[in-house]
Write a protein that binds this DNA or RNA. Structure first.
Lengths: 224, 224
DNA sequence: GCGGCTTACTGTCAATTGGACAATAAGCTA
DNA sequence: TAGCTTATTGTCCAATTGACAGTAAGCCGC
């Protein structure tokens, strides 16, 4: 018995959010949980299954967003139905305004991860643990990979990128130093036009060629 | 069908080595593979299973060494016997002189990972991929965690610690700068006596309280 | 069309860090 | 006691970082 569960993170109103669904069946009926489900019988690749759940349960097109394996959770007793091993995936989505409604995925809601961490929202199974692991993974990877760009659209301004770091790390960053540092990292972002906003128009960028950041953007010591 | 496979790394003669076993049964009989095996039927915790395999197949006492989950490998066709999902674990052992013989684990041999990467040693299943993932994980974690101390014994000198970094990263490091930097990281290592060697006696250290390194020891750009 | 508002971007400076390298220390051995 | 070996402490300069000031470029309201 193998399931695939998804930690899907995005930025909404400057806050880090995760996609949660309300369970329609027992066990834990009516409670919030990570989207996910059982492997299709037989020969389904894990990554493919994660993409399928992403589409079915979250209504998201997996092809365009970041998806990586997070880990396996197999503690006996974690699922009252018996021995269930869950493979967790971490997905990063650009800030979509729609509350992920529509298709199959009614009952899917973005929730601030801060509310879950503070105990305001309880999750079924060991999904709280999995969600925390996913958030911590994202925090760590922001330091030395270009993961932050996955939170943004195709193009983005440096301010938008900065808001990603601030939301995920839970810190404030000086915009001027951030600007300098980000542009100093070879292959992180490349210019791509301009954009009108309130105030002076901002330069637009796309994700560059490098997946790894040299030098890394080191997280301040007290970060969440 | 769930198996647990182990990437066990250690330092031998200044080189990064992995523990490999010769398979005694089909498939891939006679070829080298990572130590591992099927989950005990029913209710065995994954981490417990990893410890069990560590003792059975490698003759190593799991309690004392670093063990962390590496990932899941579930591509259809990776095992000719059918659908087998493998949970990989990464273990780090201090440099043991014994070639891991003795008990159950005959046919277990330390092999330089460089020989595997160079194609001189071929591995069964997708174990070459898993081994590479394990080595890359170790390389990354050396930067911002105290993982390097897991390669050393209870106490160690700074030179020994340096040799860990050099072997895993495949670079040369200036001893004087390394000395300074390592001691500047709060809680990384704490003094613990002295040790006579050839040349001037070295100070001994133990692993400190911190698991995370602030500031990190950044890997040079061209590292392996 | 001109202040004032907002956001974007460019500079500057002192303090810290980092890499290259020289010098000294402390044991052992012959 | 000289010489070898490894450990540890310093020094110097270049590069980086963090704190902060100043300028630029749109839009809005009048």
């Amino acid at each position: 018995m193998v399931t695939v569960d998804l930690v899907i993170l995005t930025l909404r109103a400057g806050e880090l959010n995760a996609l949660l669904v309300e369970r329609g069946v027992e066990p834990y009926q009516g409670e919030m949980a990570l989207p996910g489900g059982f492997l299709n019988n037989g020969e389904e690749d894990l990554q493919v299954a994660a993409h399928r759940e992403l589409a079915e349960e979250a209504g998201l097109d997996g092809a365009s967003l970041h998806l990586e394996q997070l880990g396996v959770y197999g503690t006996p007793g974690r699922d009252p139905r018996g021995r269930v091993v869950s493979v967790a995936y971490l997905a990063i989505a650009p800030g979509l305004p729609e509350p992920a409604a529509g298709t199959d995925a009614a009952g899917a809601r973005w929730q601030p991860v801060g509310a879950v961490a503070a105990g305001k929202v309880r999750l079924a199974f060991d999904h709280e643990l999995i969600l925390n692991d996913g958030v911590e993974r994202a925090r760590a990877k922001l330091e030395h990979t270009a993961l932050a760009t996955a939170f943004c659209g195709e193009t983005f301004t440096i301010s938008e990128l900065q808001r990603v770091y601030e939301a995920v790390w839970g810190v404030e960053i000086d915009p001027r130093n951030f600007y300098r540092k980000v542009q100093g990292v070879e292959g992180f972002i490349v210019p791509d036009g301009h954009k009108a906003t309130r105030g002076r128009p901002a330069r637009l960028f796309r994700a560059g060629r490098s997946a790894a950041l040299h030098p890394p953007l080191v997280r301040p010591e007290g970060a969440t």
